[in-house]
Design a protein around this nucleic acid. Sequence first.
DNA 1: CAGTGGTCTAGACCACGGT
DNA 2: CCGTGGTCTAGACCACTGG
Lengths: 233, 233
Amino acid sequence: MSKSRKVSFQDIKSEVIKRIQNRVWRQGTLLPTEHELALEFDCARATVNRALRELAEEGIVDRKRKSGTRVNMSPIKQAKFEISIVRQTIEDTNAIYRYSLVDRALAQAPDWLRAQLNVPVDGQVLYVKCMHYADDHPFQIEERWINVDAVPDVVDADFTQSGPNEWLLAEVPFSNAEITFCAVAATEAMAEFLAAPLNAPLFQMERKTWFRGKPVTFVRMSFRPGYRMSTKY
Amino acid sequence: MSKSRKVSFQDIKSEVIKRIQNRVWRQGTLLPTEHELALEFDCARATVNRALRELAEEGIVDRKRKSGTRVNMSPIKQAKFEISIVRQTIEDTNAIYRYSLVDRALAQAPDWLRAQLNVPVDGQVLYVKCMHYADDHPFQIEERWINVDAVPDVVDADFTQSGPNEWLLAEVPFSNAEITFCAVAATEAMAEFLAAPLNAPLFQMERKTWFRGKPVTFVRMSFRPGYRMSTKY
DNA sequence: CAGTGGTCTAGACCACGGT
DNA sequence: CCGTGGTCTAGACCACTGG
């Protein structure tokens, strides 16, 4: 008559969150062991384990062998941002995407870039500057430096039709990266390309990418004035 | 003589990533089924499942019932940012944290805020403005509006010694939030508090928070000029 | 409707790390 | 040492969805 369904790890997650919200388990409190919770919820320990493991990944609780599981002191710890290629970002707003190549040049890596990418002194890089438009309004300036040593084929790549981002995605299937956000004032060139006032505050995103331990590319993306990047959690 | 150890889900994750990097499985490729992989790796299906499930969470592959698992077209999809309270951020750089309350007032919620937080017309909010310093250099301006209806106790809270952030963390143990990043030009007031030039480009972070479906607070944090927020993945 | 992933179980062994 | 979480297994049933 009872036991309508099996207990799911989702049920346990919700219940644990509920108890934290209701102060049944306060911050810093030690939770019952997996075994005890499995008895309480009448389910397998593996089910409790998955629930608690996910809560730990989300930063809600801390787990340590032998010590046990306790409620984290500051629950909100991480925000995830979906980082997609510009084309996607723009098309997601139902705008028409347009791409334009501005500049492209092969050169020795300047010192600041060598420091960033850890490229040898005589290393060559391909510099690419391009624009991304949404409904023909300037949306983003992309300035990119690509380590020729890491992806030699790039010197033959034609970036007149589509950006280096999409080319690299196909070429470098998986990579590590470091992302940085900051605010800068529009230089004269940036102002012109973005149709913005000189010194306008611009949201900027930089990304360094490695593939198999080798530095591949450094990119600086400057967004149109007023751009906002959001996420929920 | 062989079989030194059991196959771990980590082993499978690494191997799958390796095959993607080596173009064994190209973008868009359909992977073998869990059952087939379990046979190949000579392990339980649950082990393969966990490996593939985590790769899916990380955005490396896409999984659909019946269709199977395929390599995602754009592998890099999400960046996680650790969001900690300012005190933590500052102390992590080995700087000395100092807090200062600037303003505090009870008021009717202005229209723009009512729209943001979905507060009733006659709703009261507590406005708090404060400063966070690192080694006595201005680090961040915090402007916050707290929905009195959601946390009535806040009217008795004393924010002269520590910020509303830490008070709320203890009071609201778990919450949903929406975070936004943008760039703004320093107003006269902001420039003064941050010891920055007028119109300096500032990195700004806004956060809306809900607890049990009720809007709790809206906060706008303006960082000192040159502040950069980074993450690796 | 049949194939694929999604999840649960009951039991086992292991690894880390307080005591 | 020994309790706690971390993981694997072998098997089972279910839920979604493409053909």
